[in-house]
Amino acid sequence: MMTELLLAFSFGDWFRDASYELSYYFSHMNKTQWGIVSACSVAFGFLCLKGTGINR
């Protein structure tokens, strides 16, 4: 059963489906949703710049 699922899986099909879904979601987002995405990406960037040293 597991072997059949692995043989039926295609990375090309998965990537095409995933890219279609992402483009669909991004084309249907409103300004509030874009603001949330951009704020999260900026916060994540600052956390990455801070590094592993967490102040205690």
Rank of each mutant, 00 (worst) to 15 (best):
R56I: 05
S23E: 11
W34N: 15
R56S: 08
F9K: 06
S38Y: 07
F9H: 06
V37K: 10
W14S: 07
S41H: 00
M2G: 15
F9V: 03
S38M: 14
N55R: 00
S19A: 13
Y25A: 02
T3M: 01
H28P: 01
G12P: 06
A8Y: 09
F44G: 02
Q33I: 01
L5K: 14
V42Y: 09
I36F: 10
A8N: 12
L22C: 13
N30K: 15
S23R: 12
C40K: 05
V42L: 05
F9C: 06
S19M: 13
A39N: 12
T52P: 00
K31F: 05
L22I: 12
F11R: 05
G35M: 04
K50Y: 03
C40M: 13
A43C: 11
S27Q: 05
F9Y: 09
A8D: 13
L7E: 11
L49C: 03
F46Y: 11
R16S: 04
S19L: 11
M29I: 09
I54M: 10
G45W: 02
G45T: 09
S38Q: 10
L6P: 06
Q33M: 08
G12M: 01
S41P: 00
Q33G: 08
N30W: 05
F44I: 01
S27Y: 04
V37L: 14
N30F: 07
S10I: 00
S27P: 03
T52K: 08
A8G: 12
V42M: 03
G35P: 01
T3V: 13
V42A: 05
S10M: 08
